[in-house]
Amino acid sequence: MTAKILVVDDDSSHRTMLKAVLSAEGYQVQEADDGDTACRAVEKYLFDLVLMDLRMKRMDGDAAQKKIAVISPGTPVVIMTAYGSVRSAVEALKGGAHDYLTKPIDVDELRILVTKTLHHRMLEEENLNLKERLDARFDFGEIIGRSPSMRELFETLALVAPSEATV
């Protein structure tokens, strides 16, 4: 499954460039020209990563990122900043951004960061999924037994169930 990335930047050339670079890497890229549009896109679709400019005319990256965190809490947001100052980056990270990049974007750095973030996101999701599945599948509610020894048995069952090993 190809990862879906939302590129948010009010500079259309920059957006085009990012789309070209990320598409060439094999990602599915969607564009948004400001924070407001980005929020609506996040409401509609599930993205694996949002790459967003910090300074935009209608809704800046800081506000949009906070909104996205509410709409889709699991989606990592990477902020791009042109100031190159530590302060703006710290502000972005404090606001809940996953990471940040400084403009002009170093494409190699971008590629590595995207891969890393997606991998992180994938692991997180997988972890969550497994936990859910574990809870759903090994709900031993129908077997009667509350004594400690029975509970120990349920735990052992849950542990060995997913494996192919003979018990």
């Binding site: 920059h14 460039m17 042109a82 002009p104 974007i105």
Partner: peptide, 16 residues
Amino acid sequence: HEIRNPLSSIRGFAYL
């Protein structure tokens, strides 16, 4: 911001 944005675009395309 105004200088680095275009620089970023050009740099990305040059890379491509």
